[in-house]
């Protein structure tokens, strides 16, 4: 479903006085393939390039060289507006900091992607409620303001927002970074069940092995290169 072929990314730091611009290679020819229905964790220490990789996977950024196929299309040379369309229709984001609209109800937050996707008004609420239930939020919170919720509840709202448009890929960037261990576990098992029971493709970015272990496949990245890519076996079943 998604495939990276020899993806590289470098940033030019602005030239300092007499010196030349320094090329900073963040990703050095990364290649891998993720199939539909997989739950993949990308793990690496800070500065490893995992965030950059996530931005490219999430169509927020394009690689300097290499190809990135999303549902068979090479996204690497898409324009800004085309990238926005990919994000709108195919990707759901879950962020470390939740990024909910404050002073807006839970329901309005979840419906926001549908507004940009031009989903008819009557369908929005229905779809949002389904997503919220799938994300495991109790119904009596639906009309609360998002800043009245606890961290765990906020992240569930964020997950629901990522789910609402039925994306091909859910990208979670350190989803437990702002949560305590116990709440984090609940959120992670929510991801697990979304993957297992509803077949959502999930890519989780983290720096903690304990978090990565919830996934079925772990890609380890260091200094802009993949150093390990292993699939886990659960019982006798290959997942």
């Amino acid at each position: 479903m998604i495939e990276c072929k020899n993806v590289s990314k470098n940033y030019k730091s602005p030239s300092t006085g007499s010196g030349q611009a320094i090329e900073n290679l963040v990703l050095k020819g990364v290649s891998f393939k993720i199939n539909e229905g997989e739950f993949v964790a990308i793990i690496g220490p800070s500065g490893s390039g995992k965030s950059t990789l996530m931005h490219i996977l999430g169509a927020l950024d394009t690689p300097t060289s290499g190809e990135y196929f999303f549902d068979g299309k090479n996204v690497a040379d898409f324009s800004d507006d085309e990238l926005a369309d990919v994000r709108k229709n195919k990707i759901g984001f879950v962020f470390q900091a939740f990024n909910l609209l404050p002073r807006a109800t839970v329901l309005r937050n979840v419906m926001l992607p549908l507004v940009y996707a031009n989903v008819p008004k009557e369908k929005r609420e229905e779809q949002a409620k389904v997503a919220l239930k799938n994300a495991g939020l109790e119904e009596d919170h639906f009309y609360h303001l998002s800043n009245q919720l606890s961290g765990g509840q906020m992240q569930r709202v964020a997950i629901a927002r990522a789910l609402v448009n039925n994306p091909s890929l859910i990208l979670a960037d350190e989803p437990t970074g702002n949560l305590d261990t116990k709440t984090g576990e609940i959120v992670l098992s929510t991801f697990q069940s979304l993957n297992k029971e509803q077949g959502h493709t999930i890519v989780l970015i983290t720096h903690e092995m304990s978090v990565a272990n919830y996934a079925n496949r772990i890609i380890q990245i260091k200094d802009g290169q993949i150093i390990k890519d292993e699939k886990k076996y659960e019982g006798d079943r290959f997942i």
């Binding site: 999430g58 507006d81 926005a84 229709n89 759901g92 984001f93 990024n99 609209l101 940009y116 996707a117």
Partner: peptide, 16 residues
């Protein structure tokens, strides 16, 4: 700024 970032992440175009 963050809200704008979020809106862009969920598919808002420059025009929007």
């Amino acid at each position: 700024t963050r809200e704008i970032g979020l809106r862009k992440a969920i598919g808002a175009k420059k025009k929007d």
